[in-house]
């Protein structure tokens, strides 16, 4: 029964992952591709304050390695890209696993991410003892989106390739902490009756935002701001659709298959 419960969550996540892959192709992926044209233009010498553009360039060598610009940069660079990777230390040679196409890689990552978020949602539901049903699935999805996307996006909006950003590790820690605190806060706000719980919930939502997300020292970017604004909204809208599908499909599968043991 435990295995069946977990399998139900994984199946719901895979379905939502396939949906997400299709939804991304509408707005989000075209904007990423558009932004990458500008990202390649960023000469690393212009950003001495941060290492991000350099790291970004190296990690994207599979993208712009074939472009004329990449060839030009490597001509003028004192080190070859292979050496640059060695200097990065932890960054081994990149590339998409199993030699898949870019689209297949994205599909695979969406399936894994979908299954992961679905298991997290199911795990929360099981631990706190509130089932996900077809009737309340959309609410589960909406709350997942609030905790994982909207509330962290207040500090760290979805960013395009080539956008300036603070140290990656710092941002990841802030992001993960904010997701966790926001999820606990939403539980307190939505499912507990006590006044103290409501107040604690609001405080937990506010805490990471007041503490503040790590911000870059240098906010100049070659990527046009309009693309960034469009992308932030498109990414949030797309993930909202993903979470609603995830919640409703999870509820449907629970009602239909897990209940009928």
């Amino acid at each position: 029964m435990i295995v069946k419960t977990l399998l139900a969550a994984i199946v719901a996540g895979l379905i939502a992952g396939v949906f997400m892959t299709a939804a991304q192709e509408m707005r989000v992926v075209p904007l990423i591709l558009h932004a990458e044209k500008y990202e390649g233009e960023a000469p690393s010498a212009d950003h001495p304050a941060t290492q991000e553009p350099v790291a970004g360039h190296d990690q994207h060598s599979w993208l712009n390695g074939t472009s004329a610009l990449g060839a030009l940069l490597s001509t003028f660079s004192p080190v070859t890209p292979a050496h640059a990777h060695e200097h990065e230390g932890e960054h081994e040679e990149g590339g998409i696993m199993f030699g898949m196409s870019r689209f297949s890689g994205t599909l695979l990552a969406n399936l894994v991410t979908g299954a992961g978020f679905s298991l997290l949602l199911a795990g929360v539901s099981l631990v706190i003892g509130y089932p996900i049903t077809l009737a309340n699935g959309a609410f589960w999805g909406a709350f997942g989106w609030l905790a994982v996307h909207l509330l962290p996006a207040i500090g760290l909006p979805p960013e395009l390739p080539g956008f300036p950003a603070a140290e990656l590790g710092d941002r990841q820690v802030w992001w993960a902490a904010t997701v966790l605190l926001s999820a606990v806060a939403l539980y307190l706000l939505a499912l507990r009756r006590e006044l103290v719980a409501k107040i604690a919930g609001l405080a937990l939502i506010a805490a990471p935002q007041i503490y503040g997300a790590p911000q870059p020292l240098d906010i100049s970017s070659n990527v046009p701001a309009v693309l960034g604004a469009e992308f932030a909204v498109a990414a949030l809208a797309t993930t909202l659709a993903f979470w609603l599908v995830l919640g409703v499909v999870s509820g449907f599968i629970n009602d239909r298959f897990v209940k009928a043991h």
């Binding site: 989000v28 991000e52 802030w174 990414a235 993930t239």
Partner: peptide, 16 residues
Amino acid sequence: HDTAHDTRHSYGFPCH
């Protein structure tokens, strides 16, 4: 990172 690149950006994960 390279495999999940577009997914990481679309989901708003902190990325490079």
